[in-house]
Amino acid sequence: MAQAAAVAKPPPSTAQPPPGKERRRRRGAGASPRRLPYLLIAPAALLMLGFIAYPVISVFYYSLRHYNPTKPWRDGFAGLDNFVTAFTDDPDFWRTLGFSLQWVAVEVVLQLLLGLALALLVNQTFVGRALARALVFSPWAVSGVLTSTIWLLIFNSQTGITRYLADIGIGSYGTSWLSDTGTVFPAVVVAELWRGVPFFAILILADLQSVSKDLYEAAEVDGASRWRQFFHITLPHLKDAIILSTLLRAVWEFNNVDLLYTLTGGGPAGETTTLPLRIASIAVDSHDFGYASALTAIAFVILLFCSLLYLRLSKFGGQDT
């Protein structure tokens, strides 16, 4: 929750360099202390300018152009053509955008609720806690592609879980949840949950460590029930952590390409194609970089707008903290 701390409460004691520092400058590692901070951030700043800022600007630039390496004769200024096409002439744009929002909403809400429950659970004192924590957190380190690998093995129609379920009389042989438009959504949601819940659980558990025990003791003395303790002590304390991890996760899930690309390839019948997947396929298959950039620009604006709205609605880092 570094961001939480960085935005909400810059500790006044350390934000300012302690007085007296300037007097002791002497041998400042070969640079005068005035220039030193700039030298120190220079490598990071240059890398970010070159490989983050410049690409962002060029996305907006390309979005206003026809740009397709396979059709160079059409290249040139396009004005808002690409955007007009997206909004009026591309049903796939609306469909993939809608699926993206559905995907983000379902994943983030379920991950947050399960992650919170899991964090509270492994925050209790019990025998075997360290091992239990290590085990339930372990999918956090697993990649999207490996998650796909695992769930492809589970969902495959011949030797997947449905076969063994059919053996004991549940369902029928040869069912493949990933290729049926009715079951593919819950199937990929479960696969992503498996990997995503530990993220929330780890961050929330970390934040739980800093709740003062005195508060619970006082509440206990006052006879507050565990539910009341949760709603009046734990939840307010976790507020910033929850807001920030939810926001980061939402952006992250919006752009999650690894899992869907490898597990379903956006199928069946385009049923699980998110906007970023569609952008990637436009760029890779039809090389229409201009149009792909326009869709990317739209995605940027949506992400920015949602982030601001969310921070605003949740009054993040308000005076009460």
Binding site: M48, I52, P55, F254, N255, V257, L303
Partner: peptide, 24 residues
Amino acid sequence: GFMLALLCSQFIPGALMLVPLFEI
């Protein structure tokens, strides 16, 4: 300004930057 840039870049997804990065 630099802090703000760091925080904002959290929201800039690598997945959407493939085309310009490829060009670079």
